[in-house]
């Protein structure tokens, strides 16, 4: 079965950890993840500037490792990312910002990518709130 995982909360929120554990279980069960879409505060998970205290779990780092290891299509909503300061090279140049902080494995794109994934998938599971 084909899944879309929609992440709506920041990487500090338990919901984002839950989304990761769920996504890991999806692949472990032999299902497919068509796309992981990061939206609203979820885009903060794709920043490589996050510094997490040593005694806490770095869920953003775990998400990135999961995405790259499994070669998942991880799309970050561009409008939500820009307003939260998550930029790739092209956007940093366009808006004349010094920092490029979109982590490897992610790409900025539009909501259309969520719609497109929904057309291909059997299930969309959203993880938001706390």
């Amino acid at each position: 079965m084909k899944f879309v995982i929609n992440v709506l909360s920041s990487s500090n929120a338990p919901a984002t950890r839950r989304a990761l554990r769920f996504a890991q279980a999806v692949l472990a069960a032999g299902h497919e993840i068509v796309r992981v879409f990061f939206y609203q505060d979820g885009v903060l998970t794709a920043s490589n500037n996050l510094v997490v205290a040593q005694d806490q779990q770095d869920i953003a780092k775990q998400w990135q490792a999961f995405i790259t290891e499994n070669k998942l299509d991880a799309v970050v909503c561009i409008a939500a990312a820009l307003r939260r300061g998550v930029l790739d090279q092209a956007e940093a140049q366009r808006y004349q910002r010094e920092a490029v902080n979109l982590a490897d494995g992610y790409q900025l794109s539009g909501l259309g990518q969520l719609h497109d994934a929904l057309q291909q998938a059997d299930r969309c599971i959203s993880f938001g709130g706390e």
Binding site: A25, A28, R123
Partner: peptide
């Protein structure tokens, strides 16, 4: 647990995530 959560999402014909 998480594997059972995934299995449930498959077993029901639709899933609605309230947010």
């Amino acid at each position: 647990d998480y594997p059972a959560f995934v299995a449930l999402c498959v077993a029901y014909s639709r899933v609605s995530s309230w947010t």
